[in-house]
């Protein structure tokens, strides 16, 4: 995405309060994820290293805004630190999926022919599984742990990117500037990397940024089902799952991490809609009119 495109998108987001809300939520989430260890009121609680029997099941108060859990840990601190793990998982999953998906889509799309068809058939095979089921199966096989969660989700994720890149590359590879590069005598590798890929990436980067919300949701799903990260990691899905057992006596230990997931995912979706609107020329015109 070029600087001008980014600036235009930002301009369009700024004029729409709903899009702006999405942007604020996502920014807050990222900042929280980066600074988490330094801003939690009870760092030891956050990491899950403590056990305070006298502070169990305290309802929300000024001291513990989100209350405490069955081990007497501050839920607020755990939710804040959870942002870091959610951020880590979403960046890890999307990043790894891009790393696998982009080269496959690029090579398959540009070279075409038998090799291209084979690569895309493999991609389709992965696409044929329901992604969450595939991720659950993989996570269960690999065992619990942060890295395994990332791997399991990325493997169910990359085919979407390679499809997207493949479609883009197919529309770009016949453009005159690619012909011009061939006529100059560049090698297919150079043409792919210098001329095709940079122009295929805009929709992929946008899609990837927006997929981070879904990655958080799915990672939480895995943790909730017990095939995700290991306790006592304060990952949001795990927090919901841990609090679930005591929901009758301490509803807060499950509710607040759940709300954190909800708000973050909504934030990413609002932002997604705004960016998609801004990228579509027809919708763009509608936005301009709304402003007039």
């Amino acid at each position: 995405m070029s600087f001008e495109e980014a600036r235009l998108i930002f301009k369009l987001i700024r004029v729409n309060p709903i899009s702006m809300t999405g942007l604020i939520i996502v920014t807050a989430f990222v900042v929280m994820g980066l600074l988490a260890p330094y801003i939690t009121p009870y760092p030891e609680d956050a990491w899950g290293l403590t056990y305070n029997i006298e502070k169990r099941y305290l309802p929300p108060s000024l001291e513990h805004p989100f209350g405490t859990d069955e081990m007497g840990r501050d839920v607020f601190s755990r939710v804040i630190l959870g942002a870091r793990f959610s951020l880590l998982i979403s960046v890890g999953v999307v990043g790894l999926a891009l790393l696998i998906g982009i080269p496959i889509g690029l090579v398959a799309g540009y070279l075409g022919g038998r090799a291209g068809t084979l690569l895309m058939r493999i991609t389709d095979m992965f696409l044929a599984f329901p992604p969450l089921l595939l991720a659950i199966a993989l996570a269960a096989t690999l065992g619990r742990g942060l890295v395994n969660v990332i791997i399991a989700l990325a493997i169910s994720w990359w085919p979407w990117y390679s499809r997207l890149v493949y479609v883009q590359v197919n529309s770009i590879k016949n453009l005159p500037y690619v012909d011009a590069a061939k006529i100059i005598g560049l090698s297919p590798f150079k043409i792919m990397v210098r001329h095709v890929l940079p122009n295929a990436l805009t929709p992929v980067t946008v899609q990837a940024a927006l997929d981070m919300g879904s990655a958080i949701l799915e990672a939480a799903g895995l943790s909730f089902l017990g095939v995700g990260v290991k306790p006592p990691t304060p990952e949001w899905g795990l927090l919901v799952s841990e609090g679930w057992a005591t929901i009758n006596i301490a509803w807060w230990s499950s509710l607040f991490p759940g709300l954190a997931i909800l708000v973050t995912v909504i934030g990413f979706n609002l932002l997604a809609d705004a960016v998609r609107e801004a990228m579509d020329p027809r919708l763009r015109k509608a936005i301009v009119m709304r402003r007039l």
Binding site: P176, Y177, D179, A180, R194, H195, N199
Partner: peptide, 8 residues
């Protein structure tokens, strides 16, 4: 415009 790479 189509024969020049827009990103170069």
């Amino acid at each position: 415009f189509l024969s020049l790479n827009p990103r170069m």
